[in-house]
Amino acid sequence: MPLVSQNELGGLTEKAWRGLSVDCPVPWGLAKDSNIMVQWLASRGLGFADSLIECLAMVKENPMLAHENPLDSGVMIAPLHGLAMLDSILAEGMVWNGQIYGANFIMAGMGLLLDDDLANSRDNAARLTLSDADGIAAGWKDQMIRMRASMPSNGQYELRGGGHADRQANVSLTAPNSPPHNSTHAIDVNDAVWQQMQEHAQNSYVPENELSRNRGAGAGNIDND
């Protein structure tokens, strides 16, 4: 299993999304959201690989999934749309019901937005929850992200914004491992997962030819100056 840095994981994730399709590429902003969400999960020891690989495969099969608006379609690819979607939920205090793929990435989106709330001293009391048929699966509580011990990666969920602290009052949720900002550990990534991500990313690079090689920055290919 390769031991990779968080920055390396995020960067490759972003490139993997971008490499899925040249004709209908994943928008840069969503690919960059995925970069930071995957780092958030990995730095806390939370799983990301299976759902990320599954979502990459889905979008490779149907690139338009990245462009469709989950607010209209009722389908969300959380590793791409999660952060943007939660920002919308917060902005409008709304409720959204639909199918989520890669629901663990919702946790990352919640964490990142909570950081922003705390940094800007906003009232963040119980403004976000993720629920399924078994009740609340995750949410903000006591200035932390709380989550149920397990939750399906894919399924029908409700996202709710706005004040509803009472809904959380009696729910037993635990905080995920919440490292300080300077979490330093490297990430173990399965060989096959890393290989698949690299294969996707490869398509985001421009193939070399003699012209581009010669136009590259730097002295000649041999330089004994």
């Binding site: 928008p27 902003g29 969503l30 959201d33 990245a66 608006n69 607010l71 919308s88």
Partner: peptide, 16 residues
């Protein structure tokens, strides 16, 4: 809301 706009136009999310 700006987030709703960015959901409708994901191609602008990066620059916004």
């Amino acid at each position: 809301s700006l987030p709703r706009f960015m959901m409708a136009y994901p191609q602008h999310r990066f620059i916004l």
